[in-house]
Design a binder for these strands. Structure first.
Length: 156
DNA sequence: GCCAACGTTGGC
DNA sequence: GCCAACGTTGGC
């Protein structure tokens, strides 16, 4: 039983267009420093799981495409790098605190599904992304929600 | 740039 | 273990 996910990124830092330029369109999703998000990546993400990519702090914020998990969790080594923005002195190679997965781009939506529009879709009412105060950068998505998103993306 | 909603830290 | 202070996220 595959799972479905949504992962946020700030396009000014790393956008889906950046992902599209990567070798094999694959990247490691580093920098997550939230325990709940980490647990999803470390414990629940399996190869082949589908992922929606979301641009936060964008104008407007939007779901911009899809990816899939191609490598299951392993330690986020950027946490050990003093010069990294997400350096965490409490994480070490012996006792890693943070984890990441590799994802590969599947599709960049022709037109981004913008947040204000998504809010109007009844079928997405319960979606974690649309809940007030939801800040989780890695969150589960229900099958029904994923299907709705795919349909919306295909319609454009 | 503002600020509400969260998450984390650390004193007690 | 409580909770105030502080830091971060992210829409607007």
């Amino acid at each position: 039983m595959p799972n479905y996910w949504l992962m946020k990124t700030e396009p000014s830092t790393y956008s889906i267009q950046d992902l599209a330029k990567e070798k094999k369109k694959t990247t490691h999703w580093d920098g997550v420093r939230n325990y709940q998000a980490r647990n999803f990546m470390r414990d629940d993400m399996k190869i082949g799981d589908e992922v929606l990519i979301y641009h936060s702090n964008a104008d407007p914020p939007a779901i911009v495409g899809r990816a899939k998990i191609v490598k299951e969790s392993y330690p986020d080594f950027t946490a050990w790098d003093k010069n990294d923005k997400h350096f965490d002195p409490k994480s070490s190679p012996e006792n890693p605190r943070w984890f990441m997965v590799d994802i590969q781009l599947v599709e960049v939506f022709k037109e981004p599904l913008e947040l204000p529009g998504l809010k109007k879709i009844k079928a997405l009412d319960g979606m974690a992304l649309l809940q007030k105060g939801s800040r989780l950068s890695v969150q589960p998505v229900k099958k029904k929600e994923l299907d709705t998103i795919k349909k919306l993306a295909a319609r454009k």
